[in-house]
Design a protein around this nucleic acid. Sequence first.
RNA 1: GCCGCCAUGGCGGAACUGGUAGACGCAAGGGACUUAAAAUCCCUCGGUAGCGAUACCGUGCCGGUUCGAUUCCGGCUGGCGGCACCA
Length: 804
Amino acid sequence: MNKYEHKQIEKKWQDIWDEKSCFVAPQDYTKPKFYALVEFPYPSGQGLHVGHPRSYTALDIVARKRRMQGFNVLYPMGWDAFGLPTENFAIKNHVHPAEVTKKNIARFKSQLKSLGLSFDWSREINTTDPSYYKWTQWIFLQLFKKGLAYKKEMNVNWCTSCKCVLANEEVVNGVCERCGSEVVHKTKSQWMLKITEYAQRLIDDLDEVDFVERVKIQQKNWIGRSTGAEVNFKTTTGDILTVYTTRPDTLFGATYMVISPEHPIIEEKWANKLNNIDAVRAYREEAARKSDFERTELNKDKTGVCIDGVRAVNPVNGKEIPIFVSDYVLMGYGTGAIMAVPAHDDRDWEFAKAFGCDIIEVVSGGEDVQKAAFTAKDETGILVNSEFLNGKTVKDAIPAMIAWLEENGIGHAKVQYKLRDWVFSRQRYWGEPIPIVWCDKCGWVPVPEDQLPLTLPNVDSYEPTENGESPLAKMTDWVNTTCPCCGGKAKRETDTMPQWAGSSWYFLRYMDPNNNNALASKEAMEYWGPVDWYNGGMEHTTLHLLYSRFWHKFLYDIGVVPTKEPYAKRTSHGMILGENGEKMSKSRGNVVNPDEIVETYGADTMRLYEMFIGDFEKAAPWSPKSIKGCHRFVERVWNLFDKIEPSDAYSKQHEVLMHKTIKKVGEDIENLKANTAIAAMMSMVNDFYDKGINRAEYKTLLKLICPFAPHVAEELWSMLGETSVLSLEAWPEYDESKTQESSIQIAVQVNGKLRATISLPVDCEQQLAIDTALADEKIQKAVEGKNIIKTIVVKNKIVNLVVK
RNA sequence: GCCGCCAUGGCGGAACUGGUAGACGCAAGGGACUUAAAAUCCCUCGGUAGCGAUACCGUGCCGGUUCGAUUCCGGCUGGCGGCACCA
């Protein structure tokens, strides 16, 4: 028999699959469907990383199995190709970003093809293709028309190196997520999307989908719902200062108030009433000058200024209390003002200690509140010094106080979210143009839908400007236009959309990728939607995954898509780390190039190793040595070919093994446990080396291996004389009643310690189990001279004798 | 600080709803084949004691529940990820 030559075999079968369009999902809407999705990559200049195939192979295995089970399977791939690295490369090397993108895509595509992934390449999409971003722009216009896209002058995160605005989600520890440079605050007019309007539904509908729990938790935490009350405090000037609190029960303990340095009431109402307005303004300017990074770095020591000239009145007891300005109160959350209860809040306590404010205990049950704040919200605390709340638990006092506030018109229950609206503008070239025009007469006017796509014009230079304008602003020919509304002079919006725009709806486009009249046809969306199984990285939980759920819900509301949620199931893979256990990165020098593995061992070995490396959901270090084990397995399957006996039925000795393994492999694939599925197949092959194998057994083995190592499986299948394409053959069936041997080894314990193993018929009577156990020599020795006071028999598992 | 996850041989990792810990693979050691090496095939492989049958110990640490705990509960220690002055 021939030697195993992976290069020839893999090329051969990839060509055959292509020629026969084996993985093209037909527009046959009568068969049961299965839509498997993996996150489409950003085609970077570095090419594929070994991390990419982990996700792709895992769902490829599921897709291949489902295809063999008769499903109409859609497993598509495309390119999320707008983005900064491409633009920066273009600037540096004086090439058009579209050229760079084209080249990178070609490289990625050939790399993906070399892995034998069963993508339907006829549905390939590219977010930078005008026929694609036409619909990204169209969705934006719908958001605009419904008032969910709006322009706002606001304090934004500005990356000093990218020269670009960042969304809150893109700022990590006060630095730019992408380049690590300092992020400062800047006031700019920005397009915003009202994701906050969907906050509650984004939480509630998580109950309807099958997402791994950590994804749900992380999304809920990010949205950050809290319940409490808004309370109005009167001030000595007669103005009302509204606060939000989650602890209305502690209102009797509010001994001062704090407002954010940027609170508008200072300049609007109090500018000429404060004796120390200069000090307040100086403090505000100092706070504004700090970057996010500095502000969080310095968050240990509380700073602030007491307002001189206005005081507030605690509405529950009429006491006058001071008002402070401090940067520990944020303008972007709640009302930008708080009531401070130092006895029961750590931050207020620290501030009170620094500024000598009163600390009054209103919840008993903790230590001395002069020494530390008592913040427990459970039943341990009982209200004191709080008139009508005295004696109540915190849990009961909260609704009681809210009821009292509502009765007296002082306040009301309120739900707050940490989630903020999505900053949607980017001052860069390589993104979707925002299809809006500014007209001095008509304001912001949408580009008429029949004029979409609004294509990106060619510019001479992609450099962002120092003043923070998009490179498009320099294109006066393009910028100057006429108002679609009144026909007068108008200017185009020059900001572009963020990278997250194109990926927020791409899964819909795969359903019907060439449609020029809609983002996808109704029939296609009704058949294919929702995505049955979506796998991707945890790093996208609060970005892409949340954004795309938001867009989908919006599209559902306007009747474009038929389901509330885009993805029925979401799983998440762990990262592949370098050999040293650290994250793979160029700077650490531990990056593994998948091409080398494919070259040396072949795609089948690569695929097996990516799956065998460990628990799919956990991070795992790359190990070049372990790859050999997977390669040996492939060769052992290959060499087994010479040992095949001619028989068309499973041999008696292997019958249970066959049925058991079919069951195990099938279940493991569905549970993303390809690692143990491979282990089971390795065991099976070991057994065949021991005891021989026949044709029927070999055929089943090849079918089981096919989703994991499809090329070698196809080649061996054809070597058997079969003329069909194995990838389209039927998945093997098993018989539950034949998955167990008729007799079984069970453990016999004495006082919970293993003392012997005995062989018993499956599901045998308890008494027989006990008798057999007692008849065992070792057991007799172990219980000799002792009284058996109890026997525990667990069917097919153990017999435990309790002796004294 | 808050939320979530994790801790098992020399290594990656198995172990169903509490029931024979260490499947499968890597590395290592031994053997066969070979002039030799590679490859392949076979055997051993948690620790201690013993020639051996076997005994005792062993799933980060301390304690609990149970006939029985890697698995459940309480308290620690260490690591990873997310959020972070969110009122």
